[in-house]
Design a protein around this nucleic acid. Sequence first.
RNA 1: GGGCGGUUAGCUCAGCGGGAGAGCAUCGGCCUUACAAGCCGGGGGUCACAGGUUCAAAUCCUGUACCGCCCACCA
Length: 917
Amino acid sequence: MQLPKTYSHKDIETKWYNHWMSRGLFAPADRPGPSFSMVIPPPNVTGSLHMGHALNNTLQDILCRYKRMDGYRVLWVPGTDHAGIATQNVVERQLAQKKISRTALGRKKFVETVWNWKREAGDAILHQLKALGVSCDWSHERFTMDEGLSHAVREAFVQLWEDRLLYRAQRLINWCPRCKTALADIEVVHEDADGTLWHVRYPLADNPAQHLVVATTRPETMLGDTAVAVHPEDERYQSWIGKKIRLPITGRIVPVIADAYVDRAFGSGALKITPGHDFNDFEIGERFGLDKISIFDADARIDANAFLTRGETGDWVARYGGKDRFEARKLIVGELEREGFLEKAEPHKLSVGHCYRCQTIIEPYLTPQWFVDIKPLAKPAITVVQEGKIRIIPEGWSNSYFAWMENIKDWCVSRQIWWGHQIPAWYCVSCDRANLIEGADGEYRLGKAAKPIVAREVPSHCPICRGRELIQDPDVLDTWFSSGLWPFSTLGWPEQTEDLKTFYPTSAMVTGFDILFFWVARMIMMGLKFMGDVPFHDVYIHALVRDEQGQKMSKSKGNVIDPLDVMHQYGTDAFRFTLAAMAAMGRDIKLAADRIAGYQNFVNKLWNAARFVQMNSSSLNSADLDGRNPLQDRDLGFAERWIRSRLAFTIAEARAAIDGYRFNDYANTLYQFTWHEFCDWYIEMSKLALNSTDGVIAERSRNLLRAILDDILLLLHPVMPFVTEEIWQTLGNQRESIMVQPYPVPEESWSDAQVERQMTFLMDTVRAIRNLRTEMNCPPGKEVKVIFYDAGEELGLLREQEPYLRSLARVSESEFREGGERPKGAATAVIGTTEIYLPLDDLIDLHEERARLSKEVGKIEDELARVQKKLGNADFIAKAKTDVVHKEREKATQFEEKIRALRASLDKLQEIQAERN
RNA sequence: GGGCGGUUAGCUCAGCGGGAGAGCAUCGGCCUUACAAGCCGGGGGUCACAGGUUCAAAUCCUGUACCGCCCACCA
């Protein structure tokens, strides 16, 4: 079959993807061999493919396809994450459009709705991944909430509980008043904001004429103040310590305490203490046994109930009850000002925590939650990275990893949402009656002292009172709890499956730095804990994809580039190649459209090279060679030996680059070889041999063209799977697929340093002649005569390769002289020791050529001066490596020689000009 | 407040101790029978700045400026 004149990616991509699927080529090969495994960072079921996914999965696919071709049994496990809060929010928004609230629906119906939605729309992203060409084994697809993984989650939870690494406690946690759930510390995004620092007068209880001034950015929380703190050594306040303050508004009497935490230099040096709504104040409260008043309800509105139950009945309770925290702030500042308690207000920069899922400002909130005692898990997780059992690439990220792990705080894993793994803990209704509070939504809330019964399956009765009425903890687990188990839960854990034995630990984890702590760190801790081994050997951390200006892509900025659009417009191969080429380590990717267009041209170039090869080997199949590899031929021509040598180099480079996760080097090496060596030079040179009357020479060239192209296709396949398959198949290779062909291996005997040197010289010569022609305005069609002077062996080489000079530089006639009189009036260039003359007589513009030569001489003189300065430096001669000195000396000689030759030519031109005048 | 990364050709970026590179853009010439999505040739950079180490610095060290991330409980 003939390759069409132009490549159209549109029809081809789906065709081959289906082909690979139907042949089951993504599954691990059914034969012995080393294994290579990866688990996909599971995208959120809510998600649609964005640039981050595209980059992430392209890189993983490159690794998998490479390893698969290279003889490994490759398993790449795909799947999705239930993404608790994110998904719940999406479905809630959809319901809201239909004017249905989650609470009105009830938990059971709501969770059903999410499942239905997940089944309908949740796989969209997987289809988009398929469009990207990923070679995941879809028969291994998993979802974090499918049965097996839910089993794994329960098992992990129970084991942690049994090992006393899990506990339930009332603590100040980060609360999102919109999602109405607790969040882990890392789920809070801190952002700088312009706020106000209010200085508020706190009068002494028994002498209202005297007051302290406290500074606060959150005056509304003074409703929950239970102390005022000063520094124990602060001379200004020695007499105040131990006295009582009567708080404005509430009139609550609170003590003045002394704690070294207080910064004397800040504000007035007195700090209001709100243990119920500030993490630092909480700590101080613990130290001093202060009351912790929770002044807000779950919506972060002032909770009048909280005061009433404390017996505080002032009218302020009614006035502020039910007010939103920001409204309350305004009202309270107003009241303070009216009542003369506000000393001043000044602008103040502060950092405000936001919910990573909905951007709502976080409220520190006192609630009972489940925590993982993380330090015992973190310790071995630090060790494995220190000892190199896990390599983090690029290495710089390990610093962040260590810093985070060493200062890690207990992990709050309970979430007050409905979509997720419900915590496998139950409470006995009769034993724990005092702790069961029925909420407005019909859900129980559990008091801080409730006694959980943690079990793998629903317990039949209470182990204490044998009561049969048990209720399950309403909370669900942090999404990242189940993703932390992903590398082994997807392989069947806790069952000891074949997959688990064969593919755990996985080989590599490819991910973005944004989830290094969220996910990677947790997987390492969980893997070590439950599997007793690292979850992966390498962690490759890639950059973030940004827009052309370097801005993070976001919907609100409207600068999002949809990968599907890009794939549609430029083709998936061009897109993948772009991502790989730009994935230099440790640097963000600014994606520019014209860059993708540039690589689309590369796809086109490859296509046309293939067409050329096909046209010249129409009857040739790989099979026709009887298994003989043309690259092994002992008797090859000059150009063949050269391109084969370059191929060997390229294969070695490609392998080294991909083995070292240097995807950009991988792409660029292949680009350079394919375009600028194979197409620019070898194909052009092959035309000579193809037209040869000697049938042996022509066939040898045909075979080699084909062999090199085949290897290019194989080398490029991991990054450009579609076009390489299309060409491979159309050229009549075996029908299975290029994706299961062996990846090229370079042979030492192919490398030929001498031929490469000779070719470099020949290329320089050709370029010099082309350059002279252009400079002299010699039309491309016009053939020229060239005279070469050289005393050394280069002359022989040029004589031998003269046909190439004819075809590549349009030289009609050449003379080779070892010395003697140089031609009069010729354009001149010098390559090494070889002088090149183009006697252009009528064509030559003497003036122009003299100007050109003078400029050239000037340039070389500058270079020579620099080299001579170096050589004149005794220290350089003494201290620099000998080969460096040697090189410099050679350069000097060459420059001198070149200058001499060019000057001579210049003189001749002058003579002619003199004659003419 | 700590930590990390960046600053190289008009743009997007490689290079990270020994002659400044690529792609795109630009200029000039080519419809040369694979490719005008192409071919051939050219121009363009005191490698942010200031010190230092070294025979030698875009490359290593220190500092400065600007940009961008991450972490952190100074109200």
